[in-house]
């Protein structure tokens, strides 16, 4: 199975001490190591305002991670663990690799087109387009 890239964001309660968050992070790391996954990135976004109330909180501490893995069960396991954590009030996992693949493909296409553009497009379309219109009109 090919490798997949996932986004994992979780929101901790606003008054959580850093040690608690570190505990959660180490827990995630542990499960990743167990199930065969790799944490690519960890970003600490800090306290942010929530767009709506979550568990009666208006603010939350956001932590963002990227995880690369071959096993989908890892994500299921991580979600289960996050759900159980008292500190975590919300989490989200998103599969990213398909979107990124599409992005790469489109980028490649665009570059190809850009490379082609100076040769073909300027002379070709105006020339045939104009006679066709006149022919249709007449």
């Amino acid at each position: 199975m090919e490798e997949r890239l996932y986004d994992l964001i979780f929101i901790a309660r606003p008054a959580t001490p850093e040690e608690e968050i570190k505990k959660v992070l180490s827990g995630i790391e542990h499960t990743c190591a167990e199930k065969g996954g790799k944490i690519e990135k960890t970003e600490y976004w800090g306290t942010r305002k929530l767009a709506y109330r979550v568990a009666k909180h208006r603010e939350g501490i956001y932590v963002y991670q990227q995880i690369r893995t071959n096993h989908g069960e890892l994500i299921a396991e991580l979600e289960r663990r996050l759900r159980v954590q008292d500190v975590v009030i919300k989490y989200l996992t998103v599969r990213l690799d398909e979107d990124l693949k599409r992005q790469k493909k489109l980028m490649g296409k665009r570059e190809q087109r850009a490379a082609r553009r100076p040769r073909r497009t300027p002379p070709a379309p105006p020339a045939p387009a104009a006679p066709e219109q006149t022919a249709a009109a007449s």
Partner: peptide, 25 residues
């Protein structure tokens, strides 16, 4: 929709509910 899920964006209608009490809080 993803952003809404993780509370980065409001769901439709809920913004009015959260925005009004915010200054009060």
């Amino acid at each position: 929709k993803r952003a809404r899920n993780i509370a980065l964006m409001p769901f439709a209608g809920s913004a009015a509910g959260t925005q009004a009490p915010r200054p009060v809080a």
